Amino acid sequence: MPERGRSCAYEAVVFDMDGVVVEPTDRAVLVDAVVDTFAAFGVEIDRGFAERTVAEDFVPVEAARDHGLDPEAFWHQRELTASLAQQAHVRDGGKSLYDDVAAIRDLDRPLALVSNNQHATVEYLLAHHAIGDRFESARGRAPTLAGAARRKPEPDYLEAALADLGTTDALYVGDSEKDVVAATRAGIDSAYLRRLHVADVDLSAEPTFEVSDLRALLDRLGA
C-alpha cells in the first residue's frame, strides 16, 4: 500500500498485546471458558453458541438473562474464568513472546501497551515474560460490562494510556481493524502489523502504514 502520513518521529509508541507482543490465545481456551462460566451457574450451554461469542467477540447478555442470570455477575465470572484459563495456557507453553519483541528495547521513547484482553491477563503476561518494565503504562479491560463496552474499537483504554504517557503524539501498533479504528478515534496514527495470522486479512479501515514485523517498525521509526 502507498505510504502516507506525517513524520515517524513520534513521542511515544503504544502496542496492542495479543498477536503483536505475544501470540494470540488458542480459541479453544476461550470457548472452554464460556462453557465453564455457564456451567458455574448450573447452565449447560451449546458449544456452538460459545464458539460464536468468541468468534464474534460479543458479550452474551441476552443469553445470560434467558437463563435467569444477572448479566453483570455472569460477565464478571466469565472474565475471571477466561483470565485464569489463559494464565494456565501460558504456563503450558501458550501465548509465547514473539522473537522480534526484543527489538522494542531499542526504542528510545516512552512505550505503552493497550489490549482488549482482561487487565489481569495483561499483568500476568507482562510478569511471566518479564517485559513489564519496558512499558510505562499497560491497560487491559476491566472485568465489568462497562469495561467490555470500552474495548477497542472504542478509544477509551488507548486514550487512558496516552494520558498516562502525557502525550497524544503517538503511534498505535496493532494487528486488527479494531486497532486501526481505535487509533483513528483517539486522534493518533496507526501501524498495522501484518504477521502471518493476518497475512491475508483485507482491511476496510486504512492504517497510516503497514509493517511485517517489529524490526521493520523500528526501521520505519528510525530507531
Rank of each mutant, 00 (worst) to 15 (best):
S212T: 10
D46R: 11
R91Y: 04
A216P: 06
E159D: 10
R78Y: 15
G5S: 08
R185K: 14
Q87T: 06
T184L: 04
D66F: 01
E177Y: 08
A183E: 06
D18H: 03
D16H: 06
A39M: 01
D18I: 05
I188V: 10
G42F: 11
D70L: 03
A85P: 00
T144K: 14
A160G: 01
V181S: 02
A82G: 03
V114L: 05
T184V: 00
A33Q: 08
D99Q: 11
D36W: 08
D66E: 15
R139D: 03
H89W: 12
A50K: 06
G5E: 13
S137D: 07
G68M: 09
A102V: 01
Y98S: 01
V22P: 01
I104K: 10
A120D: 15
F209S: 02
Q77K: 11
S190V: 05
V122G: 07
E159I: 04
D66K: 10
L158I: 04
L158M: 05
G147P: 07
Y157A: 04
A120F: 04
R105M: 01
A163I: 03
V21Q: 03
H89L: 09
S83I: 02
A199L: 15
A102R: 13
P207I: 08
A102G: 08
A127Y: 06
E79W: 09
R47S: 09
T167V: 03
D156G: 01
L214W: 05
V14M: 02
E123H: 07
L221C: 05
V90N: 08
D200T: 11
H89A: 10
G19K: 12
A102E: 13
P60W: 14
H89R: 08
R109M: 07
V35Y: 04
T144E: 12
S204Y: 07
R141S: 05
D169R: 07
P207D: 13
L162W: 12
L126N: 09
V13K: 06
N117C: 11
T144H: 14
V101Y: 13
A163F: 01
H128Y: 14
L125W: 08
D175E: 09
V34K: 04
D108A: 12
Q77G: 14
G132R: 07
L97Y: 07
T25Q: 03
G187W: 13
R27D: 15
E3N: 02
G68I: 12
S176V: 03
E11G: 02
E206S: 08
T81E: 15
